[in-house]
């Protein structure tokens, strides 16, 4: 019998603890595959955030650190500076990265830290039960915006790729979507490029995944993807912002 697909060695055998239909697992899988394909299992290390993916340190099969909420880019900076021979990435949600950790991500990007950042944007605080995130869409209802996000009161969602694209140092910035198989295949290419650049020590690489949270959006997984395609993609447009490797 020929095995055509199996768990990459870069993932442990610990089962994911995500809700059914959650796309965190897909994002983990893409990152793990890319690390495996680049042959980095023995020199990679990662930083897990505070959010639904807080247990990412159990899922990736190499050395991992668990950071305080939002501080992953600072922790990764310390790791990369202490062990320049290793390859370092962070995995962060939107509350973690674009609210409490705004200073840390902007300055890590601005220094051009030679790390990769994987940013899962599901427009909500998943782990704490569905509160408003900095990426929550206008009029979107959450437990802390029960009448819908009022942009007069609390402003508009933050587009992180666009924000980081104003900085000089970052090497590669791309936003991808995890909302359909075709888009997941595209996302994989972006993740592979980020990991390859990381391996080559080129500079700061940043991938944003447009994702979902069926549980806290209160819809089933299929509907959550349809909703995200209709509402998130127009605001968070997938695309390449920066690729110094390709002269973009």
């Amino acid at each position: 019998m020929e095995i055509i697909a199996t768990r990459p060695e870069t993932l442990t055998k610990t089962p994911f603890t995500y809700c059914p239909g959650c796309l965190h697992g897909v994002a983990h899988r893409l990152i793990a595959e890319a690390i495996q394909e680049e042959g980095l299992i023995n020199s990679m290390c990662g930083v897990a955030p505070v959010g639904c993916s807080v247990f990412a340190y159990k899922f990736f099969n190499f050395d991992m650190a668990e950071a305080a909420h939002g501080r992953a880019p600072a922790v990764a900076t310390g790791m990369k500076r202490a062990r320049p021979e290793m390859h370092v990435f962070t995995y962060q949600g939107d509350g973690d990265l674009a609210a409490i950790g705004t200073a840390e991500i902007v300055h890590a990007a601005n220094r051009g830290e030679k790390i990769s950042v994987f940013f899962v944007n599901n427009a909500i605080y998943g782990m704490t039960g569905g509160q408003m995130a900095p990426t929550t869409l206008p009029d979107m209802k959450t437990t802390t915006s029960p009448y819908g996000r009022n942009t007069d009161d609390i402003g508009f969602p933050i587009r992180v790729c666009e924000l980081l694209d104003t900085l000089v140092a970052p090497y590669y910035i791309e936003r991808v979507s995890l909302l359909s198989p075709a888009e997941i295949i595209k996302a994989k290419k972006a993740v592979s490029k980020a990991i390859k650049y990381n391996k080559e020590g080129r500079g700061f690489t940043f991938i944003e995944f447009v994702s979902t949270c069926p549980t806290n959006w209160g819809v089933d997984p299929v509907k959550s993807r349809d909703w995200a395609k209709e509402n998130m993609l127009p605001f968070f447009k997938p695309g390449l912002f920066r690729d110094k490797g390709e002269g973009v």
């Binding site: 600072a74 922790v75 310390g78 202490a82 840390e104």
Partner: peptide, 26 residues
């Protein structure tokens, strides 16, 4: 050695966390 002026004391201590996690004097 590494000298890094962090963006805040919050970041500085978290950089320390990362480097200390690598077993080095920080």
């Amino acid at each position: 050695g590494t000298f890094l002026q962090a963006e805040s004391e919050v970041s500085a201590i978290n950089m320390v966390y990362g480097a200390a996690g690598c077993g080095k004097r920080v």
